[in-house]
Write a protein that binds this DNA or RNA. Structure first.
Lengths: 123, 123, 123, 123
DNA sequence: GTGGTCTAGACCACC
DNA sequence: GTGGTCTAGACCACT
């Protein structure tokens, strides 16, 4: 049932990354809407002939990107629509994480803003 | 030799996170200076009685934080002092990643700046 | 000078494959025309910060694809234009290789033709 | 106990090729039957006094020939008997690769068939 | 514990 | 000077 994802073993891209990028596309395009539940790790692993750890890692990376949110015992769900909303949007979650990391590096607020401006201009 | 790290199996904190946070402390306090080389994954794993993948994951998360830089075949080294420098600083690397992710969410430049400001004020 | 190729260390795709696929595109699109010489292995390696063996492998795979031809001491050159020509075209070279391999598997001529038809229909 | 292979350092043929051709012979003659597992890369390397990468390359070339199939983390096995079977035979795998490469060269289906016919007649 | 890829430096063969 | 190959050991991803 779950939206189609496939893994090509002959592709030099590692399976977890094939998975991650396909799921990323499904989410950012809105095929998987906010609150949609991803397939359980073990089920998806079984369907694709992968080890559970491989699927698990794909989900974990999506979580680091702020695209999904996983709660023990409750599966993993899409974190937001494909446009930032009100309070607890994915962008806000991603940004909190980034700011915490940046401060961990000893950066002052102004440094952070400057770095972001620079990165936006560069890209 | 390498700086002391330990893992307490009775601690509910997962081993990779115990490792990560201890190494983070060693780096941000300067005990492990810029360019210091971390112990090889397999050696540290052997010393601590952990699986190599566990150590590997701790290193990977440190890399995502911008604290270390790992080059395939050449080990993993501390990425910088504890203040951002010129061109390719840790803050810059972290920020590039964040900006890429934020754009992946469809955020415009102004949205990004606004989100960062909000997160800085909140924290 | 040489046509632009770049390697992104943070891309999960291995460097040799990033290189190979970019060069493949440059050749099949005609940006690198027949007989164009690729950059020397060590030069390209130095420019990109890679080990010579890595660039070497990319070149070797392109050769297996029939896109380039490399002669010891004389560098490696693009094997053909972007459309098959007369006698020793890239398609012919690729096909000779394929036929030899297929026969090595014990396939009869009819088997080979049938397999090719099937693959063409499938793709 | 695996079938005997040896490497002669005084032979001008590079070690990886000595290995490849011996294994090829063992497979095509049926000494190593379908599904037989090749020795692990590191074990064979140790036995022969070679670097793992050298053995690895021999295995990789055999895979490109369609003789063995390697699954990450699960070793490499002989891919088939010495005659093509049902769905995913070695010939089919080899052919898919060839067709993909040929199309990458811009060849139309008719060109491919013609080239194969020519190569079969020539050989 | 499996194969995969990379680095760094080395030697060889060819032009 | 060019590519080809090798070694030794590192990390990576997967089962």
């Amino acid at each position: 049932m779950s939206a189609d994802v496939t893994v090509d073993p002959s592709d030099p891209t590692p399976p977890f990354e094939q998975l991650r990028s396909q799921l990323e596309a499904l989410i950012t395009t809105g095929v998987l809407p906010r609150d949609a539940r991803l397939a359980p790790v073990r089920q998806l692993a079984g369907d694709l002939g992968l080890a559970p750890g491989t699927v698990s890692r794909a989900y974990r990376e999506l979580e680091a990107q702020g695209l999904v949110q996983t709660r023990r015992g409750a599966g993993t769900r899409v974190c937001g629509g494909f446009v930032a909303e009100d309070g607890d949007s994915r962008l806000a979650a991603l940004t909190r994480r980034f700011v915490a990391d940046a401060r961990g590096l000893g950066a002052a607020d102004d440094d952070v803003i400057a770095a972001v401006r620079a990165a936006l201009d560069a890209g």
